[in-house]
Design a protein around this nucleic acid. Structure first.
Lengths: 230, 230
DNA sequence: GCAAAAGTGTTCGGGCTACACCCATGA
DNA sequence: TCATGGGTGTAGCCCGAACACTTTTGC
């Protein structure tokens, strides 16, 4: 390394993942029981230290993979936390990421191994360090993003119904939405493909299933279109 | 430090500041001529390394102070850049911040010392590393923030005229705004105090000066009010 | 047959946009 | 007196919010 650079102190860098999921009960967060001191046994976000030849994005992917064995997951960087005493165990700068995963897909075994558990978003425990702050930021970001980007689908199975999608939006934004207005808006994007198939088990009548048309979205997007659901 | 922590590699951390200013010519960015290799002589954001007992926010403040001798400046964290080879001089993780400063207040001397220069936002040079990316992100963030937070005033003197404020919004969002609509919206917030004083030198007639009422804003804000200028 | 969720149109009002003319003053 | 930018009101339109009834089917 160049001399000018090597005069400076180095720091530990961590990434912490705010992992969102969605099921019948609503929006959920995947938390782990921290294994090491300080704060062993307390609830925590899943995290890990940045390695030598690893980008931040890669580190976040790795950390997520360790817990869930999922790759190809929606991940987005949030803020970086650098208060001097945020971690009593030592000076650590932490970069927060949030992830959207399909709860039908994660590996139960691994989750048990880490003592992980899904918590309802309205009912979170106290987390170590500044992790609760990170979650607040993540939720606000998710609320904003799902209104202006079609990323809500990352939390649903490939095939989903309109009422299911609506429940997702309601859970994220913690509000009730008029179903007629919602249906009009979401179908108005022209980005949902109606399938010849109905949802089983939720209602007697069964709701039609849809798929999100990713290719069409990218095409639209490149023509200056902006997804918007308010 | 705890053994679990000290097994991990440490990294150099930098902060880089995207410094916005505003004058008659429009929105501007303060850039420096980089003094050290790699890339010595090229245009760059002002930056510096994070110190041992210093938070990220403090580091950003310090870096900004070194160049401008300004404190009490609006600073907001943006993304953190961690690609392995983003800096050919060594592995450096960089946290970007943007700053809004009043161009009537910075110290010319210091700026010369660093070989710094104000550039029009539409007319930026190629910057080192990923600094152009950082600027893009900063500008988009500024566009969004000035629509939902009253931070545009940070770029203006204490006393300013409505047409001046409008020119600021036009420069930030790179669009023309109807002056009647703009005036209505901005005065509709009830957050501007009209002074018994006129602007000199810009027009013959002179525009009335206003002040932004910060206290009123905080009071409104705590009652759930949200600033919004579209 | 009844309970429970799916599906469907219309109306109303508020807010945003578009638009043109007079005013004050320095040169 | 003329050129330059400051300051003002209104009408139309569009979009978002509110709202109630019929349909399907498992039990």
């Amino acid at each position: 390394m160049l001399p000018y650079y090597s005069q400076n102190v180095k720091h530990l860098i961590a990434v912490d993942c705010i992992i969102f999921g969605f099921d019948r009960e609503g929006l959920r967060l995947l938390l782990i029981k921290r294994a090491v001191e300080p704060g062993a046994g307390a609830w925590s976000l899943m995290g890990g230290f940045l390695k030598e030849e690893e980008s931040l994005d890669k580190a976040a992917k790795r950390v997520l993979y360790e817990l869930t064995e999922l790759s190809e997951v929606y991940l987005e960087q949030l803020n970086t936390y650098g208060e001097v005493n945020r971690d009593p165990g030592g000076r650590v700068i932490s970069v927060a990421y949030y992830a959207l995963i399909r709860t039908d897909k994660y590996d139960e075994e691994l989750i048990k191994k880490y003592g992980a558990k899904w918590f309802k978003i309205e009912d979170l425990p106290r987390l170590i360090f500044d992790h609760n702050d990170m979650v607040d930021v993540a939720l606000r970001r998710l609320q904003r993003r799902t209104k202006t980007r079609p990323i809500g689908f990352e939390l649903l199975p490939e095939k989903f119904s309109i009422p299911q999608l609506q429940r997702l939006y309601e859970a994220i934004n913690q509000e009730n939405i008029d179903k007629r207005n919602f249906r009009r808006k979401i179908l108005g994007t022209q980005l949902l493909v109606k399938l010849n198939e109905k949802e089983k088990g939720v209602s007697k009548r069964g709701a039609f299933l849809y798929k999100f048309d990713k290719e069409k979205y990218y095409k639209f997007f490149n023509n200056g279109y902006h997804f918007e659901i308010y």
